Amino acid sequence: MAAACVRSLCKVGQSFLEAPSVCRSRTVSRLLGNVSGHGSRSAYGTSGPGFRSKLISSVRAGGGRALGCAFLLGGGLGLYQASKLSVEQHLAEEDRDVSGQGLKLTMYQYKTCPFCSKVRAFLDYHGLPYEIVEVNPVMRQEIKWSSYRKVPILMVGEELQLNDSSVIISALRTFMISKGKNMPDIIRCYPELKYVNEKGKEVTEYSNKYWLMLSEGENNVIYPEKGMQKEEMKWRQWADDWLVHLISPNVYRTTGEALASFDYIVREGKFGTVEAFFAKYVGAAAMYVISKRLKSRHNLQDDVRQDLYKAVNDWVAAIGKNRKFMGGDQPNLADLAVFGVLRVMEGLQAFDDMMKNTKVKYWYTRMERATLNHEGGSQSPSSL
Score class of each variant (00 low, 15 high):
Glu375Arg: 08
Leu372Phe: 04
Gly68Tyr: 05
Gly76Leu: 10
Gln141Pro: 01
Ser378Glu: 12
Arg140Glu: 12
Ser166Asn: 12
Phe175Val: 01
Ala43Phe: 14
Ala370Ile: 00
Gly102Ser: 05
Val338Met: 08
Ser215Leu: 11
Gln330Glu: 12
Arg149Ala: 09
Val338Pro: 03
Tyr210Pro: 04
Met228Asn: 12
Ala239Lys: 07
Leu308Asp: 01
Glu275Thr: 04
Arg297Pro: 00
Gly75Asp: 02
Leu172Tyr: 06
Arg253Tyr: 13
Asn34Ser: 12
Arg253Val: 00
Thr273Ser: 10
Gln109Asp: 11
Thr112His: 08
Ala334Pro: 07
Met354Phe: 09
Leu123Ala: 08
Val360Arg: 02
Asp352Leu: 11
Tyr125Val: 01
Gly76Trp: 04
Ser382Asn: 11
Ser166Phe: 07
Ala70Asp: 01
Ala311Cys: 10
Arg369Tyr: 04
Ser86Asp: 13
Gly74Trp: 00
Leu342His: 03
Gly328Met: 04
Gln229Pro: 01
Leu172Thr: 09
Glu346Asn: 09
Met367Tyr: 01
Lys321Glu: 14
Leu300Val: 03
Arg26Met: 10
Lys84His: 12
Ser86Lys: 14
Gly227Arg: 08
Val167Cys: 05
Cys23Arg: 15
Val167Arg: 02
Val6Gly: 05
Tyr210Leu: 14
Cys23Asp: 15
Gly272Asp: 06
Glu232Ala: 05
Pro152Cys: 09
Gly217Lys: 14
Ser53Asn: 10
Asn322Ile: 01
Leu31Val: 12
Glu375Ala: 07
Glu268Met: 13
Ile265Pro: 02
Tyr80Leu: 15
His90Asp: 12
Ser25Val: 09
Leu79His: 09
Met355Gln: 11
Ser21Tyr: 08
Gly377Asp: 01
Gly269Lys: 07
Met228Phe: 09
Asn197Gly: 06
Thr273Ile: 13
Asn332Thr: 03
Lys359Gly: 11
Val274Trp: 13
Ala4Gln: 10
Leu193Glu: 15
Asn332Met: 03
Asp329Thr: 11
Ala286Tyr: 09
Asp124Met: 04
Val133Asp: 05
Tyr190Cys: 11
Ile222Asn: 02
Ala258Ile: 03
Pro249Asp: 08
Thr204Glu: 01
Glu275Pro: 00
Glu375Phe: 00
Thr204Leu: 05
Lys270Tyr: 07
Ala370Lys: 02
Gln101Asn: 12
Arg305His: 08
Cys5Gln: 12
Val312Asp: 04
Gly180Gln: 14
Leu17Thr: 01
Val360Lys: 00
Asp307Ala: 02
Glu232His: 05
Leu160Ile: 11
Lys359Gln: 13
Gly320Arg: 04
Lys324Leu: 13
Ser383Leu: 09
Gly127Thr: 05
Phe16Arg: 03
Val196His: 11
Gly328Ser: 06
Tyr108Glu: 04
Val203Ser: 07
Val338Gln: 09
Lys84Val: 05
Glu159Ile: 06
Ser40Leu: 14
Ile153Lys: 06
His298Ala: 02
Arg369Val: 03
Thr27Leu: 09
Leu193Asp: 14
Ala258Arg: 03
Ser178Val: 00
Glu142His: 07
Asn182Met: 10
Glu88His: 06
Val151Asn: 06
Gly157Trp: 05
Val35Glu: 06
